[in-house]
Design a protein around this nucleic acid. Structure first.
Lengths: 98, 98
DNA sequence: AATCATACCTAGTGGCACTAGGTATCACAA
DNA sequence: TTGTGATACCTAGTGCCACTAGGTATGATT
């Protein structure tokens, strides 16, 4: 999800959480304590990279950018996702119990 | 996935693995070491229940049956799944990088 | 008799999801 | 001016669980 968000545009932790919350119709309320370790892990794997930037508000924000490796990883995961979807669909997901 | 399989019909460990393998076009190769602990956990949560049965082959097999609670849990998870799908779709999953 | 497929199982490890904190700045109200 | 809420970053600790790597046993095939 983070990689998807960063493919749209560079973003920062707090905003990523808001975005997920909004896109899930308030169904997913990711805590910050969850997010930042994930971001750092993604950075370590060189799927994303960080840079500091001062917003118009005057606040420092740590923006993240998708790297080339990140883009490749995202494609790999989209492929995997299709397998998951296809498999669950084959197993009758969504169909009512007869 | 296990609950989905058991909604179709009662099944046993070894067969469940084969089924997942087949339904995923050989993309998912679940090990038995993975499966059995999960089955036991589901049983403990009373989402499934086990019974021994002798197959025509003469072998003892431990069949699992979906319980009422299991059926309810499966519906809950299908709901969750729709949220996940919708959210990822909203975030542009599947769309090519522009 | 050996090997393969079937059929069940447990122990151990490492990673990670999640909770529960902490720090700091800015805006705004009491 | 202090206190509250939103913004914005972070770490430590716990406990579960995904996964690997084993083990046992039977029936069928070679």
């Amino acid at each position: 999800m983070i990689l998807l968000i960063l493919r749209e545009q560079d973003s920062y932790g707090y905003q990523i959480i808001q975005r997920i919350r909004a896109m899930s119709a308030q169904q997913w309320l990711w805590s910050e304590g969850m997010l930042y370790p994930v971001l750092h892990r993604l950075e370590k794997r060189e799927l994303i990279e960080a840079y500091w930037k001062v917003a118009e508000s005057g606040r420092q924000r740590k923006y993240y950018r998708l790297t080339k490796r990140g883009r490749m990883e995202l494609e790999r995961q989209e492929q995997q996702w299709r397998v998951v979807q296809q498999t669950l669909s084959n197993l009758g997901l969504g169909k009512k119990d007869e």
